[in-house]
């Protein structure tokens, strides 16, 4: 409850503050639209040569694109900026102030910085998903919707935990500020179903950098291509990884405050 309230205040302040620079909104919209256009162009060229990519039809790939924007937008809206800020704070010593606050430090560090205009990406993601659903024609039944909702939630939890695990390394190593960029550059691979990649890359994108769980799996849930096993695995990881990340964070914090020394 407190978390939501704090998140809301951060969002509101970020928005109020950004409203002074409306140019940023235009710039972000332009960027997101260009990125969307590039993806659509790519899809267009691919589907001018084939009917299905690794078994995925055009609207199914559109669903992937929608999830790509949605999850990427959420991550860049709050998770990535906050965790970057956290690492910067560690480096500059400002993290001490986070620790003196009477709220959970992990929570505060995870929502501290918000890039409001990334909401544009979230909106684009929702829009593309809508178009994909309309195109798929057949109504998405409650089972698929539930599978999508569940896997999307798990996907966001997995991405957040993964990024938190990376960021927590800052407690041990000071110069890790661009470690999060790894995720961003690999996230690009999520525009396509990870099934098309060679096995070594597919495995890396599933278990090393969990982009498969963040994008392909929820999209599969939506278009009805999700197996029960994968669903169970996604949900299990979505529960387990946050716990692991939490444990790791606490270890980091203990080190930071010298409790383990």
């Amino acid at each position: 409850m407190r978390t939501l309230r704090l998140l809301w205040v951060h969002l509101r302040l970020g928005a109020l503050n950004e409203l002074q620079y409306r140019g940023n909104l235009v710039a972000q919209m332009l960027q997101s639209l260009i990125s969307l256009a590039a993806s659509l162009l790519g899809l267009g060229i691919v589907f001018s040569k084939t009917d299905a990519l690794g078994g995925w039809g055009p609207y199914e790939l559109l669903a992937i694109l929608g999830v790509y924007f949605l999850v990427g937008g959420i991550s860049q809206l709050v998770v990535q900026p906050s965790l970057s800020r956290f690492m910067e704070d560690i480096r500059l010593g400002a993290f001490d102030f986070t620790l003196t606050k009477p709220v959970d430090a992990q929570m505060l560090a995870s929502i501290k910085q918000i890039e409001v205009w990334k909401l544009v990406d979230v909106a684009i993601g929702a829009g593309v998903l809508g178009v994909a659903l309309a195109g798929l024609g057949e109504g998405v039944g409650p089972a698929r919707a539930a599978a999508f909702g569940l896997t999307l939630l798990a996907g966001v939890a997995i991405v957040y935990s993964f990024l938190l695990l990376l960021a927590t390394c800052a407690f041990w190593f000071v110069r890790v500020d661009n470690i999060l960029v790894i995720f961003q550059s690999m996230y690009e691979a999520g525009r396509w179903p990870i099934g098309i990649y060679p096995p070594w890359l597919r495995l890396s994108l599933t278990f090393l950098v969990p982009i498969g769980f963040a994008i392909t799996v929820p999209a599969s849930g939506l278009v009805g291509r999700l197996s029960g096993d994968t669903l169970a695995l996604a949900v299990a990881l979505g529960v387990a990884l946050p716990l692991v990340a939490r444990w790791f964070w606490r270890r980091g914090l203990r080190r930071y405050s010298g409790a383990s020394a």
């Binding site: 407190r2 309230r5 704090l6 205040v9 951060h10 302040l13 109020l16 503050n17 500059l92 010593g93 400002a94 001490d96 102030f97 003196t100 606050k101 009477p102 709220v103 505060l108």
Partner: peptide
Amino acid sequence: MTLVMGQRNQLVWDIPVADSYELNRVIYA
């Protein structure tokens, strides 16, 4: 309690001071 360090800043750099205070209001309830 409170901790103030003269060489480090805890106000948010880019937003008005009052907004930073607003955050503290919520954090400290």
